Simulated assay, not measured.
Amino acid sequence: MLRRFEAELRLPDGARAPSSMGSILHGALIEQLPEDYADYLHTENLRPYSQSIRWDRARERVIWRIGTLDRTAGEIIGAVLQSLEHIHLRQKGYTVDMQNIQCIEERGYQDIADEYFRAETAPRGAEIHFLTPTSFKQGGAYIILPESALILQSLLARWNRFCPDIRIEEDDLAQTLAAHTRLTRYALRSAAFSVEGYNIRGFRGQIALQFAGSDMVRRILGTLLTFAPYAGLGIKTALGMGAVETDIWKG
């Protein structure tokens, strides 16, 4: 089960909320979780959630968004969020008020797969909006461009880890899928994300991908990119990097 939660944050006067504040909020969230579950999370390479913070211009509010990737994470994190009226940020030395906490979306993995595999026509492409700094790591080096193979590798790893009943796997599948995408438009800029005083280089902006290949290839691409807003893309999605929204071009 996939869920997305949202909360409006009221910061003290004069306080700023850059994307990298997601790292501080993550630490504060971990402190609120049951001890045994927090201990379990520290042993996991892939966390069953993503989270990020951003300024919503339309609402003129700082929005904290958390996506959970399995039922346990959704239930535990959801219960913790609903119990909070404020959260203390020790690294900042102040408390943030939380308002309008709600689950804005809930879907099953099967529901997402059915949306594309039962549709009459396969999707034609997608837009990906990178809302917070995004980066990938390959061979020990940071990759600060949205390479299709790395995007798809990131999504396949999380989908198969948290949805073992509907696995999407085949040898070199990320590369095979990437070979059937074509970048048709982009508007990107470099961006940094600070973690404990260290800046990780990445990018923000948006890209458009056109899908090619067989119906099956395009249906898998649509499925994975619909999953992306819950999972995030790339590295350190639990700390606030790699938050995305996607728009799938259907039919």
Score class of each variant (00 low, 15 high):
R16V: 03
S20Y: 10
M21R: 13
G22F: 02
I24F: 03
I24S: 13
I24W: 05
L25I: 12
H26N: 12
H26M: 09
I30W: 01
Q32C: 15
D36S: 11
Y37Q: 06
A38T: 03
A38D: 04
H42K: 10
T43Y: 03
N45Q: 10
L46S: 10
R47V: 04
P48N: 13
P48T: 10
P48W: 13
Y49N: 05
Y49Q: 07
S52L: 02
S52E: 06
S52G: 07
I53H: 01
I53C: 00
R54M: 15
R54Q: 14
R54I: 11
E60S: 11
E60M: 12
E60N: 13
E60Q: 13
R61T: 07
V62N: 04
W64D: 10
W64G: 10
W64F: 15
G67K: 02
G67F: 00
T68A: 05
T68L: 07
D70Q: 14
D70L: 10
A73P: 04
A73H: 02
G74F: 01
I76A: 07
I77N: 00
I77A: 01
G78E: 11
G78W: 04
A79C: 09
A79L: 05
A79S: 15
A79T: 12
V80G: 07
L81C: 12
L81Q: 12
Q82D: 15
S83A: 14
S83V: 05
I87P: 09
H88G: 04
H88L: 11
L89Q: 02
Q91Y: 09
K92C: 14
K92E: 15
G93Q: 06
T95D: 08
Q99L: 13
Q99P: 08
N100E: 11
N100S: 12
I101L: 02
Q102G: 08
C103Y: 07
C103I: 08
E105S: 13
E105M: 08
E106R: 09
E106N: 14
G108L: 10
G108E: 12
Y109G: 05
Y109C: 05
Y109N: 06
Q110T: 07
D111I: 06
A113I: 15
Y116W: 10
R118G: 05
A119E: 09
A119L: 11
